[in-house]
């Protein structure tokens, strides 16, 4: 393993660090758009992914479908199952990233998911292939610091940020452990619960971000339960990045309800990207309109 690069080098060279530096310069929160890889079918998913930067996504979180997504609420569970039924796998998710990178070499892309598919793929092969495909970061929900040594050193060697999660249950002692091998940014799970359900009140998020900032210089992204324009704007006034997932993924379900037959799904794609546009706009102007 080559460890000749310092942490500082990593922080300065990647797409994630560059994007956060630019956002800081603009004094605004970044909009992180979450969608599930391969949902609802490979081609539609590709059109959605390719369209997100144009719809204002500063970062993209691409969900790696898993049969048993324990930290996800109904919307993302359903997205995962739809994708798997349409033939998605870890391999097709990496293919999707590869195709995206042909058109976009700037937007940071983070894969989010569960450990088992990576473990089966083979951790070293996976980080190799992910790095070549153009992945910038990994969020593995069920790989806490206690087990992260299985993946973290290999990801770091390939220059992929291993993004850590902090939660309302993370006290100062725990944060020390979480932050000890964090890079890229810190993802704050703002509610006790699964994705797309409850929402945290403004004061709680403010307090949490202040607390986290006292422990780390990493940018803080806040996610879970951010569904409306108002909620997105509120979080964007506080956090360095604002993550929206279920509210986008739900547009896929809605579009399928309207046109259940496979075929032309351009209306679904447009509807989801419109939703992303609305939310990203709210995030973009949150601080200037509040001022």
């Amino acid at each position: 393993m080559s460890l000749d690069k310092t942490d500082q080098d990593y922080a300065m060279t990647g797409r994630i660090a560059k994007r956060f530096a630019a956002l800081k310069h603009e004094n605004r929160s970044g909009f992180v758009a979450f969608i599930t890889g391969g949902d609802p079918d490979p081609e539609t998913a590709q059109q959605i992914l390719d369209g997100l930067p144009g719809a204002g996504a500063d970062f993209i979180e691409l969900g790696m479908p898993f049969s048993d997504p324990m930290a996800d609420g109904p919307a993302i569970q359903a997205a995962s199952l739809r994708a798997l039924q349409a033939g998605a796998s870890l391999k097709t998710t990496l293919d999707q990233v590869r195709r995206f990178r042909i058109k976009d070499s700037e937007t940071p892309l983070i894969l989010m998911g569960y450990y088992n598919p990576l473990y089966r793929y083979g951790v070293e092969n996976f980080v190799q292939d992910a790095s070549q495909a153009g992945v910038d970061g990994l969020i593995i929900v069920d790989l806490p610091p206690e087990e992260a040594h299985e993946l973290h050193p290999f990801a770091r060697e390939k220059g992929i940020d291993f993004i850590r999660l902090a939660t309302p249950t993370s006290d100062s002692a725990r944060l020390g452990k979480i932050l000890s091998d964090a890079s890229g940014f810190l993802y704050y799970v703002s509610v006790l619960g699964v994705t797309g359900t409850a929402s945290a009140p403004e004061q709680a998020i403010q307090d949490a971000v202040t607390h986290l900032k006292s422990h780390t210089d990493l940018p803080i992204a806040v996610g879970f339960g951010i569904k409306t324009v108002d909620q997105a704007a509120m979080v964007a006034r506080i956090a360095d990045a604002t993550v929206v997932g279920s509210a986008l993924v739900e547009r896929v379900a809605l579009g399928l309800d309207k046109a259940p037959q496979a075929g032309d799904r351009s209306a679904l794609v447009q509807d989801l990207l419109d939703q992303a546009q609305t939310l990203s706009h709210a995030v973009r102007i949150a601080r200037s309109s509040a001022a």
């Binding site: 450990y115 929900v141 806490p144 610091p145 206690e146 087990e147 939660t167 249950t169 993370s170 799970v189």
Partner: peptide
């Protein structure tokens, strides 16, 4: 002491649950 039986076992849970 990390909950492993050979290769198996461990604590592969969401961070929210770890303190508990």
């Amino acid at each position: 002491d990390q909950g492993h039986f050979g290769l198996h076992g461990g604590r592969y849970v969401a961070e929210t649950l770890m303190p508990l």
